[in-house]
Amino acid sequence: MRPVAVVPYRDGWPADFAELAGRLRDALGAEAVAVDHVGSTSVPGLAAKDCVDVQVRVRAVDRARQEPLLAAIGFRCRPEPWNRVEVSGGRECRKLVFAPPPGARSCNVHLRRADGPNSRFALLFRDYLRADGAARDGWGAFKQRLAASVPDLFDYGRIKAHATQVLMAGAERWAASTGWTVDGPDDPR
């Protein structure tokens, strides 16, 4: 059993992302259309697991081309089936997830098609929670209660995935009411 620790927001997470993003851009070169700080550590004030999520938007997910580039800097392609495909917007989307080199800062590097609904989902999640303090605080409190009552990481993730769908219904309403769209190529945070 792998325990779950959800911690208060840490001011150092954007700098951790920036360092990772630079290494990933250098390693992937033209393969990387954009490198985004996503997930809970990308939202100022949001409690999160101390694991930085990075989304690399690519033109096409191509393990044969991309895995050697990341392996050259020590990143390992995750073998689990759920790290190869995800459903977003009712569509099955290919992806690759990479773990950091042993002993390095905890992170997940997600390679997704730049124009894929799963790429949009990650950006909308981030931007909605950055814009709506009540949603951010409610989501953080939910994750802290869940981690306290369901300490196994796998079970925590499965339960949180269902709750995320409820959160994202609000995010979609927010996107429609504000005219939100996927914007620029890189997240500066």
Rank of each mutant, 00 (worst) to 15 (best):
S119C: 15
L123S: 05
D62M: 06
R130E: 11
A48I: 02
P3I: 10
H37A: 12
V87Y: 11
T41M: 15
R126C: 12
S40N: 04
V35T: 08
P44D: 15
P101Y: 10
F98P: 01
V54P: 01
D16Q: 06
A21T: 01
W82I: 13
R63G: 01
A60H: 11
A99G: 12
K49G: 07
R57S: 12
N83F: 02
R10I: 02
A48T: 11
R65S: 08
V97K: 06
P100D: 13
G74P: 00
R94D: 14
A104F: 10
L124V: 03
R113E: 11
L69E: 05
Q66T: 01
A71Y: 07
V43M: 05
A5G: 07
F17K: 07
K95Y: 08
S42T: 03
C93Y: 09
V58N: 06
L28D: 06
V61S: 02
R130A: 10
A114L: 03
K49D: 08
V6I: 10
L24E: 02
P117R: 09
R130W: 14
S106A: 15
V109Q: 08
P44G: 08
V56R: 00
R63C: 00
D11G: 15
D50H: 04
L123G: 06
R25A: 10
E86C: 13
G29N: 12
A15W: 04
W82N: 08
Q66F: 11
G45W: 03
